[in-house]
Every structure is written in C-alpha cells, then in structure tokens.
Amino acid sequence: MAIEIKNASYAYPNGFMAVENISITIKEGERVAIVGQNGAGKTTAVKMMNGLNKPCAGDVIVDGINTKDQTTASISRMVGYVFQNPDDQIFNNSVKAEIEYMPRYFKLSEKEIEKRVNHAVELSGVEEYLDINPYDLPYPIRKFVAIAAVIASEPRYIILDEPTAGQDKFGLDILSSMITSLQNEGVAVLTITHDMEFAVNNFQRIVAMAHKNILADGTAKEIFWNEAVVADARIKKPQIGELAKMLSLEGEILFCDELVAKL
C-alpha cells in the first residue's frame, strides 16, 4: 500500500509545465515534509497524489489504483488534502455540522458517524467550539476545523498544506500530537511547509523540491546539512543547526539536546 508517482509530469491548461518527470513513493504510515520555494512545484506534485492533477505523462498509483481511472473525489477518499485556506472548504453553520458532513455524505450509520466525529474532534482539539459557527472563530482555529473535517473521512493519507501558518504555541502542540496519533493509526501524513522547525521536529523524511523536480529526499540531517541543497532549494537551516554552523561544530547538529550534549 503506497502512493507511487512514476515519471510523472504535469502541465496546466495554459501549457505551463509545473513538474517534470518526478518519481516518489510515499508508504503507508510515513511522515513526509515537502519543502522548497514557491513555484518549485510542491503543490502541483501533491495535487497529483489525490487526483486533482492527472499527469500528462507518467502515472500516479494510489494503493494499486491509477488516478487516471477514477474521479478526484473517489481518490480523495484515500488521500485527503486540507487546503491552505480553510475558507475554501468550510460552509456549514456549526463546527459539528462541518465535521459530520463527509460521514453523512457517505451515508454511514449514526454510530459510525459519532465515532468518526469524536475521533476527529479529539485529534484536532476543537471540542469547545462544536456548536459555534466556524466563521465566528479565529483563522487558525478554522484551520483545525478544516483538518478535522478531512480526518472524519478517514483517508489513508492526509496532506496538510501550510498547517502552521498563523498558529500559536498551543496550535503547534496540537498539530504535533495529531500527527503522531495519525501515524500510530497507520495514516501517512504529508505536509507542505515553509516552517523548517516544524519540519525537522515532526517529520522523519524531508523532500526538497526545486526547479519543477525533486532535488533531494532523505532524513532531516541529509537535507539540511547539505549546503548545496539548502542553497538550491532556497530553504533555511533550522535555527539550532544554524547556531551549530556558526560555532563550527561537527556532527550535523539539528536538535537542541544534541547541541547541549556537544558543548
């Protein structure tokens, strides 16, 4: 069970080629962060994974199904994608109704609906807002509502687009524990992020994209201590790594405890 992108390219209807000949495999239960500059092709690549972008060359296979053979909606039930802006998604007049929407759409039993809603609510920390109209909530909380609504569809893979934007410390803590819980349930979590601290602290595998292609794919150390990759993908080394570099320390340090132990 995996998402496999095989030598796939995608061109927008206006002819603009946004990714060229990329290949990557995302296995069940993995945590992958995709980093890189705007325009590198990150969003185009993940939109191929849930069938929104059908490749113009090559194939995308999700759990054995070629995305070309099914509608975007049916692929999306396996690969959920939470867009960057929650307002593109939310339309119900209470948080509960928004989260229940997909389970009801699938015509599940009341018991199953309740189970899924409770699970999604617990992971996203929105218990206290269930009866509130999402539009009366601050933007970062609306984002959690949008995430909960996708979790309630119980996809095998979840893609989070810039989940940390505008989040405070509490929001970041909820995100971290959500990602861990999802992984424990066997759900793969992918994220597109500009927040390097978030990437190294929560994702074992980092994919750096640049120039419409995958530049490097590996552990946080392999990516962030490869100066050529950092420069070419125009990403920033996490702060602790930067401090280690300024101190000319050996050992490709990225985490606080490593640095403390070294000194």
Binding site: D168, K169, E197, I240, C256, V260, A261, L263
Partner: peptide, 22 residues
C-alpha cells in the same frame, strides 16, 4: 509559553544548557 507565545530557539537552547548544568 504557558500563554501560547513561542520562545526563540536560542532562548530554549539557553535554558536547556542551564538545565544540563552548563
């Protein structure tokens, strides 16, 4: 941090050093 504010990574590191006795 108990009030939802972030702390600079350098400050977190500073406190970690203190906790480690350095």
């Amino acid at each position: 941090m108990e009030y939802g504010a972030m702390m600079p990574q350098s400050a977190i590191f500073g406190h970690a050093m203190a906790d480690a006795g350095k």
